[in-house]
Amino acid sequence: MQAILMREPGEPDVLMQSELPTPEIQHPTQLLVRLAAAGVNPIDTKIRRRGPLLPETTATVLGCDGAGVVEAVGSEVTRFQPGDLVWFCHGGLGGLVGNYAEYIVIDASVAQPKPRSLDFVQAAAAPLVLLTAWESLHDRAQVRAGQTVLIHGGAGGVGHVAIQLAHLAGARVATTVSSPEKADYVHALGAECAINYREEDLVEAIADWTEGRGVDVALDTVGPDVFRQTIPAMAVYGDLVSILDPGPFDLQEARTRNLRISLELMLTPQLRGLTDAQAHQGEILRRCGDLFDQNQLRIHVDQSYPLERAADAHRRLEAGGMQGKLVLTTRN
């Protein structure tokens, strides 16, 4: 099979198209999936630059998100049969198990039926950002109707689905953007307030929007500086969630406000082999699949690339300024 192989960390040019053996089912609970598309996520570029998260591995096939057709099933698999269409988030953290390839073997427990309303490109774009946004808002912050929620980077991959999930939960949503065009985009997703961070002061804008109270929930998708800037925009007893390392910060204001600070890494179940947590993530995908098919949720694909142009996709992602997601497609 054709795959994109990384033998050492570095710039996008380390991603090389290679011929690898097609993987085979080794355990009775596994599926062989013929991949149609693979999502491209920031974690992929970080691993490419720094090396695999599973340090004992060398040659690596990246790609956590996949969508495709079941080719074969293990003897104990009852939920799927050959020909079924699936989507999932698994692999890509080290070794040859990743979705920048034509085939992958995964355990049936991590796969879900692909939403009928999504094509393969859309389905491959969605799992990681959906799981990150859902766990951040529902599992960490326990978002509920009537709350005010701030989503940073609302036009990005996690941000654009987080806006929709918060809105569906009955919350009022504010978000940060970098242009009037992106402001129009996030309003269409359900954001009530769009703050152009290049022109407006975040704390002042949130104070105006909440009549001085601050937001009940904030999701940082950007990094340490934004995390620190968000603390004075929070309501007392609020929930501040970051999907990145917030770095060192002064706890005094956060403590005075009695903030609950949470960290979100949806890769933990895979990194630590937590089967119950992986099953929970499967249930999240199932519920989100229903929302897609009920036309209550949508995923935006900024651009798709053929598999052999994985390096170009990485360059595009690292250049920034996108709306939504990037996807690689196979010839299968």
Rank of each mutant, 00 (worst) to 15 (best):
Y185K: 03
R172P: 00
L150G: 03
A194W: 13
T132A: 03
E200V: 00
A207Y: 01
D184R: 15
L137A: 06
L189V: 02
I163Q: 05
E135M: 04
V173M: 11
G146Y: 10
A191C: 08
D184W: 01
E181N: 11
V203E: 11
T176N: 11
T176P: 03
A141I: 08
E204F: 00
I163G: 02
T175W: 07
L189Q: 01
S136G: 07
L168T: 02
R144W: 06
G154K: 07
D139R: 13
V161P: 07
V143R: 03
A166P: 05
V186Y: 08
P180Q: 10
A169H: 06
H167L: 00
G153F: 12
T148M: 12
R198H: 15
Q142D: 09
L168E: 12
K182T: 12
S136A: 15
G156C: 08
T132N: 04
H138W: 09
A191N: 10
R172I: 02
L168I: 02
E200L: 01
E135H: 05
W134V: 00
D201Q: 13
D184M: 10
V143C: 04
V186G: 06
L137S: 07
P180Y: 12
S179W: 06
L165Q: 13
A207F: 00
V177P: 09
D184Q: 15
V173H: 12
G154F: 04
R198K: 15
A169D: 11
V173Q: 12
R144I: 01
K182N: 14
L189P: 01
A194R: 13
L137Y: 09
H138R: 11
L165D: 09
L150E: 07
Q147N: 06
A133R: 12
A191Q: 10
H138N: 11
S178C: 04
C193K: 13
H138F: 15
D208Y: 00
G153A: 14
V186Q: 07
K182Q: 14
I206L: 14
I195M: 10
G157R: 04
L168N: 13
T132F: 03
V173F: 11
Q142W: 05
D208A: 15
V149R: 08
R198N: 15
S136R: 02
Y197I: 11
G157Y: 02
Y197E: 08
H138V: 14
G157H: 02
V158L: 06
A194Y: 13
D208M: 02
A141H: 12
A155K: 03
S179E: 05
I206F: 08
G157S: 10
A205F: 01
A145P: 00
A191T: 08
I151A: 10
E192D: 15
A188W: 01
E204R: 13
Q147V: 10
Q142C: 02
E204S: 13
A155F: 04
V143F: 09
Q147S: 07
A155H: 03
D139H: 14
R140L: 06
H160V: 04
H152T: 15
R172Q: 14
P180D: 12
